[in-house]
Design a protein around this nucleic acid. Structure first.
Lengths: 301, 301
DNA sequence: CTGTTAGCGCGTTCAT
DNA sequence: ATGAACGCGCTAACAG
């Protein structure tokens, strides 16, 4: 036949096999949450798809925009979707169920039992952060969360991580103090000062609000304190790049974003190929503790 | 016919029209260059594609991996590609030309005349940065570049921006001083100290090496200087998020990444639809100057 | 202008 | 074993 340079047309193949070997990554761009962590999802999902001879398309749809999602799915281009930035009550999930369309989640919804997902183990992450500080001798530890509104609307990470924080503190007979906080330096500054007013003996803060960090550090500096000699700061669910941008570089619990992207993608492909286990896959991965320069032994009295 | 719920199958359509309405974004993941700026390319390319009823697939191939690129193109899934992270001598471009496959560049190659591209106007950006500082009264200004090796291998931005810096300085009868610099805080620290040793009267530094910034700030602080009162720092070709993470927030020239992603994508689609102008499109966009807290009037002697 | 038909490039089935 | 024919779902070209 054609000895050289023949390549099957993937469209024609897809037309007859009913399988395009294309999957979509659903990531809302409007959610303001597009950071390095999300970029890790995207790149690792793309890499993983390629390894399995799949193509990954990007659908940057708003979470609420189920009309367009339905339309895209019905085009028939993709075999399944990976959902990012999952909300507790996520209209996209209802649609996918209704259409009986294959999907996996990166993140968790409210009906956690019924779906496959890969997510950060926020509770464990909070515990690891607290434990790290306790081992350094800290007993007065504060937590700076996301804004109150996010917590109230059931934003999973904000809820979960606070649970982990409170659990671990109480398990050690320590008082858990926390503040909600706007996602900007001013918010961090205010939250930090509030916490110090509530407990002047505070020697450490854990936060998962990256944008608030400069403000927190500012507030600490204004106390005349130096990090990490006088005060410790631990960033949780962050990305290495931002941790390394601070002075001193931040001790952090880095999000397992590469692993999560890979897991979500592989699981979806398994479903499509029919090689998945029967049980739904629930992968909870803890963050990686990386001790950099912002945490140290508690200051002597 | 079918009153409700009929959607054309896009694969079948593509098979007959010879146009899948799918385009690919080529972005090398191994290049270590995956930052917020690149994320902006990806999201805006995806958004723009969607607006024109195109799908965007992600091909995270290594720059050198032309074999796999050829294979993917010959699959016939995509109508054209957008090339990111363009190298001056980029094997991908040769392949695309050889295959006569439609493409646009985000960035520039050596044969700038023959291809469509959208890129940052680095020369103008450097000039804007210098001008900003000159207007503040600074006359002793240093520049911290990327590593020497990147410069030597013809990494476009590193070359272009230095040209702009030197031009503008000499046009004002000022001495341009610069250092190459490893992409980490230690590199920034060393480069800053070198520059200060060479010219103790230095009052401002421009850098496009984001990772070096903490080190630069550290070196300034060790001089007993405060930013922006005693020393000014301007970050060029950066992204707002990192500028806002510093204390004080950095005056920066933010990359026009959204616009670039949009331009590259629209131009490719125009080519595919045959609605493009005959002339090759060369879009050079300057960065946006955003004055935050790291630049101020030169300190009095 | 509406209705019919051919064929895009494959995988699959059926016949040899 | 190898080979011919059919059809996936659509658009384009053509006939009425």
């Amino acid at each position: 036949m054609e000895e050289l340079g023949y390549k099957p047309n993937i469209l024609a193949r897809g037309l007859v096999t009913k399988r395009s070997r294309v999957i979509a990554l659903l990531f809302p761009t409007s959610g303001r949450g597009l950071g390095l962590t999300e970029l890790g999802f995207v790149t690792s999902a793309a890499d993983t798809a390629r390894e399995h001879s799949y193509n990954l398309v990007l659908w940057s749809l708003d979470v609420e925009d189920t009309d367009q999602l339905r339309e895209l799915i019905q085009q028939g281009l993709v075999d399944g979707v990976i959902v990012m930035e999952v909300h507790l009550y996520d209209p996209r999930i209802n649609l996918l169920r209704e259409l009986e369309f294959p999907f996996t989640l990166i993140g968790r919804s409210s009906e956690t039992d019924h779906f496959d997902f890969a997510d950060i183990d926020f509770v464990q992450t909070a515990r690891d952060a607290v434990l790290h500080l306790i081992e350094l001798g800290h007993t007065h530890i504060g937590f700076v969360n996301h804004p109150h509104q996010k917590f109230n609307t059931g934003y999973g990470p904000a809820v979960q991580i606070q649970i982990g924080f409170e659990d671990m503190m109480e398990a050690h007979n320590l008082t858990p103090r926390f503040r909600f906080c706007a996602t900007n330096p001013q918010g961090g500054y205010d939250a930090c000062r509030d916490l110090l007013a509530e407990d002047p003996d505070l020697t450490a803060i854990i936060t998962m609000n990256e944008r608030a960090i400069p403000g927190i550090m500012q507030a600490i500096a204004e106390q005349g304190w130096t990090i990490p000699d006088d005060f410790s700061l631990v960033s949780v669910v962050s990305s290495p790049n931002v941790a390394q941008m601070s002075i001193p570089p931040l001790t952090s619990l880095d999000a397992p974003n590469i692993e999560l992207g890979r897991l979500g993608t592989e699981r979806l492909i398994q479903k499509l190929e029919g090689t998945a286990d029967h049980a739904t896959a629930k992968d909870l991965l803890p963050c990686h503790l990386v001790v950099r320069g912002s945490s140290g032994p508690v200051r002597p009295f």
